[in-house]
Nucleic acid binder design. Sequence first.
DNA 1: GTAGGGTTAG
Length: 759
Amino acid sequence: MSHLGNIVCRISSLKHLTQLHANLVYNSLHHHNYWVALLLKHCTRIGAPLAYARLIFNSVLCPNGHVFTSMLKYYAHLGAHDEVVSLFRQMQCRGVRPGTFVYPLLIRLAGNAGILFHAHVIKLGHGLDRYARNGIMDMYAKCGPVEVARELFDEMHERTLADWNSMISGYWKWGNEVEARILFDMMPERNVITWTAMVTGYAKMGALKSATRYFNEMPEKSVVSWNAMLSGYAQSGFAEEALRLFDDMMNTGVQPNETTWVIVISSLSLHGDPCLADSIVRKIDQKKIHLNCFVKTALVDMHAKCGSLETARKFFDELGVFRNSVTWNAMISAYARVGDLTSARELFDKMPEKNVVSWNSMIAGYAQNGQSAMAIELFKDMTTTEDSKPDEVTMVSVLSACGHLGALKLGNWAVNILSENHINLSISGYNSMIFMYSRCGSVEDAKRIFQEMVTRDVVSYNILIAGFATHGHGKEAIELISKMKEEGIEPDRVTYIGVLTACSHAGLLEEGWKVFKSIQVPAVDHYACMVDLLGRLGELEEAKKLIESMPMKAHAGVYGSLLNASRIHKRVELGELAANNLFELEPYNSGNYILLSNIYASAGRWEDIDRVRATMRTVGVKKTIGWSWVEDKGKMHKFIVGDRSHEQSEGIYRILSELGRKMRRDGYTADKSCVLRDVEDEEKEEMVGTHSEKLAICFALLVSEAGAIIRVVKNLRVCWDCHTAIKMISKLEQREIIVRDNNRFHRFSNGLCSCKDYW
DNA sequence: GTAGGGTTAG
């Protein structure tokens, strides 16, 4: 027995626990209530896996109150509410009556199931026990309705300190700062828990000044108080302040506990400095601190964010059965962040119990790495599973993916899901809706959502301004600057990029200059926008002068604008100048070679085009593939040049040749200056050619209802030849065709296009 | 045996 006692004292891992268990089995003690209860207690403490705890529990024949209680605690600790309820019922069936202390425990840990227990407690006549009474009140304070908790509180003849504290933390939980403070001020006496609750409350709402005031005023501080203050800084993103406070804490002589380490490590993840991360790892090693799964998970995240993925993975693998869902999620999002979607998906599929965050991480991973269609696909899987319901974060990714695709029907479907699931939106939720609508070509809806918002931030404005810019609404974009200033929101770098782009697309030269001059310290991007604006309108000398006057080095965007302007105005020498700079700055961007070739083509300098082609071959740069896509019945259909892989290809090409005949009849000839075309064997094709946007439009003509608006998205610029062709199609077919290319909308109807910036 | 602090996703 004393041998067993020694083992029990040393239990700090699953290995020790299994040793003890094996020992008990050897001594035939594993049926005994005493030992089973003890084993289960340790299971809870070290977070042993569910299957193992169940094995231990099931080995006892007649569990007594202690065993049941230990198992209940284990389930409650896991947050397995259903198991708690069913085990409690089992306990009643077996006629095991637990001591009164079980009730507050269950009520506290069982969350919403607590109401069930409330009834039981009353029935069993424990209603007046002060622990049970506090437990019930605390349950209502935490799970709501908090008013019921207040009723119980008011009914009490004498209140303990714990009752006051429960009530205060209840109010904080529901964001009621006023009531929390009133109670705090009314209290006859306070303890460290009361003070800490106030610090936590203010820290969680981001009111760090108030939090600090209470923290400094409190008569005594515990580790928990320090942790509350630390996490306040960490949660608000003030990593450096948190680390400074941690130093203060160490100097005061307070021993950090595991929670402290979790907070400190997560602050370091925020900070992202590998050196600091290393130093904390060394400190932990030196102090031989016991690392629980929370600390290890924090370490996984920290290494992923500022060390290396390999180290993170090593910690992840080492955790083995101690991994919880957060550990998995941290690792999944680590892979997703760096774009390693294969590894992320592998873990995601392997993960035993996924929660919302798992889904969100994976969906966001796809959405942020240009895999919008996959993001939506995965979201559809999510809606068919029982385990997790989408939340705001999910929908932000989904809406953003719909926006990138330009899938309006899918976007509307996502908006419906928002209301069906009663998902409340914060500013970023509304922002993603504005983004979706404006990228899907529906500026009116984007504007409507923007106006509906009660509070907006700089991002809301920037998204709407960018939306106006892509639609060529220059004046409206400019107006938003003064509107945001009236609202007390300062325009930032991105705001001005949007407004200047809008001026450029709308041809507003004077207004653009005025905006540019109002920027206090213009960045390179602002110069690039200005060069674009001047260049498009033919002020090429002025544009060149502006580049020469720049206080900083010009980047590719600046020369890109100049090159594009040279193409528009057929200025060979200026184009060569811009192109040569670009070939140095970004030798692998094929677009620059194409633009230069087009300039040569317009001047009839065909041998120079061959030279550009040769350079491309030497450098090894391949022409970027252009693709277009169209939404039909919630599905995206994607086309590349000369695509014949679509199942309705036959119909598409039939429409294409019919259109070709009609257009030739009306005097259409393919533009020869459109050299280095997508298709190599151009002669073989029917007149309209096979550019992807034309195929996409023909597909839409084939499947959509007569008169419906056709929406096509293209990843590159719509070429001049296509632009002409689509104008003719819109007139011939009497259809409105909206094409979004990489930065603007073209709205074709009755032979005209809305864009004012296309030459 | 009551009340306060922790890791992941946009």
